[in-house]
Amino acid sequence: MAQTGRPLSPHLQVYKWQVQMASSILHRVTGIILAVGSLLIVWGLAALAAGQDAFATFSACAASPFGTIVMIGWTLVFFYHLCNGIRHLVQDTGKGYAIESFVRSSWMAIIVSIVLTVAVWAYVLTGSHA
């Protein structure tokens, strides 16, 4: 924060918590995480192009406990940013700004992203398709 000496307006702590606060800041946080995650996607592709040994290293990292946690986390973060992103695209058309629907769509983005993450990882971990 630049030290301008100007008076400051009341900050976050004076407001009652509302879900829209969470959905808004989470969109930025998940966006930053996905930006970092995109580097991991490039790593995977570069390893696939480099050859079998490099890809084996990448696969081993991805399959390790830490790698699995990262991927599950990435899935949740991705689905949240996707759901809330679609919500924002709809709002860009001027719809969904009534308080009631604004709150409802915030909760929907959060809940749907959790449901999709659970569904994807249930599919992966049950391994019936392997």
Binding site: S38, L39, I41, V42, L48, A49, A50
Partner: peptide
């Protein structure tokens, strides 16, 4: 990063 990714896909 984008160039690295594109090159990787092209190589494959």
């Amino acid at each position: 990063a984008a160039l690295t990714g594109v090159l990787a896909v092209l190589r494959i």
